[in-house]
Amino acid sequence: MNNIPNRKAICDVLLEKAKDDKDIIVLCSDSRGSASMSPFFDAYPEQAVEVGIAEQNLVSISAGLAKGGKKPFAFSPACFISTRSYEQAKVDVAYSNTNVKLVGISGGISYGELGMSHHSAQDIAAMSAIPNMRVYLPSDRFQTAKLVETLLQDQKPAYIRVGRNPVEDIYSEENCPFEMDKATVLGEGEELLIVACGEMVKPAVEAAGLLKEKGIEATVLDMYCVKPLDTETLLEKASRARAVITIEEHAPFGGLGSMVSQAVGTNCPKKVVNMALPDSPVITGKSREVFDYYKLNAQGIVEKALEIL
């Protein structure tokens, strides 16, 4: 079982790249520990900025640093950076087109026991609705590293959400196919298409294996690029499938499921079923317990597939 969370993978990439690139700046809002960024603050104090518990300041200062030629990565719990500083993300980052990478850590229901204040089940919807904001939910540590390396090459705004806990590997050091803004296709089966992002990719892959044992061939899309959604791959696969299941660690509205439904409904109408968190505060528990309760797991996907096919 992998014990390296995706946030640590981000830190490792930035630590490596900051050796040569002195314009990389990491900002935290009293969140360096949760962000796994303490090693960066220790190694590169001149490239680290602490703003205190002030997410609006975090995002605006990041925008100013970008205006001044820097490459800021702003880290804060996803629940706060996505909505507490939403207007700063909209105006100072996206609208002003500053090269700011917003990193929402402990995303979704990572802080399962801490209640709705600490859950980010609205971040995909909120961030995706902003013009010029890209939204990424990488699935495992290898993909996270590739994503961050790629984002360092461009000058555009982006929001990246990662979870708090280590997630099981999907890819490996040697085998992590990655093309920017293209979904990764996992398996080829034409009966069912499962579209997942972030921590839900692993259960989707497991579900595909279980379905195969029952004679149902499924394709899984790791749609880490929620915006811009890879509609080309999505429609190619959806047009061949009998039905589509989406699964995400997000509210049922405005997230991956909404976007996939919109694209499929418009271009190649098929039955699309969205699996997501409920439109209510979620039950208390560790994230795994919460996922299981709402059947956001491999078994839940299998049951849903058998129900609709």
């Binding site: 700046i25 001149e46 900025v49 609006q56 300041n57 605006s60 200062i61 990041s62 925008a63 100013g64 640093l65 970008a66 205006k67 001044g68 030629g69 820097k70 800021p72 207007e87 700063q88 105006v91 100072d92 609208y95 002003s96 500053t98």
Partner: peptide, 25 residues
């Protein structure tokens, strides 16, 4: 024009970032 504005309370924190960048360089 350096930055878009209109929503109030943004200019000063943004300028903190610009000033930090200038000082670092």
């Amino acid at each position: 024009i350096e930055m878009n504005s209109g929503s109030l309370g943004h200019g000063l924190p943004v300028c903190v970032g610009i000033a930090l960048a200038a000082r670092k360089d």
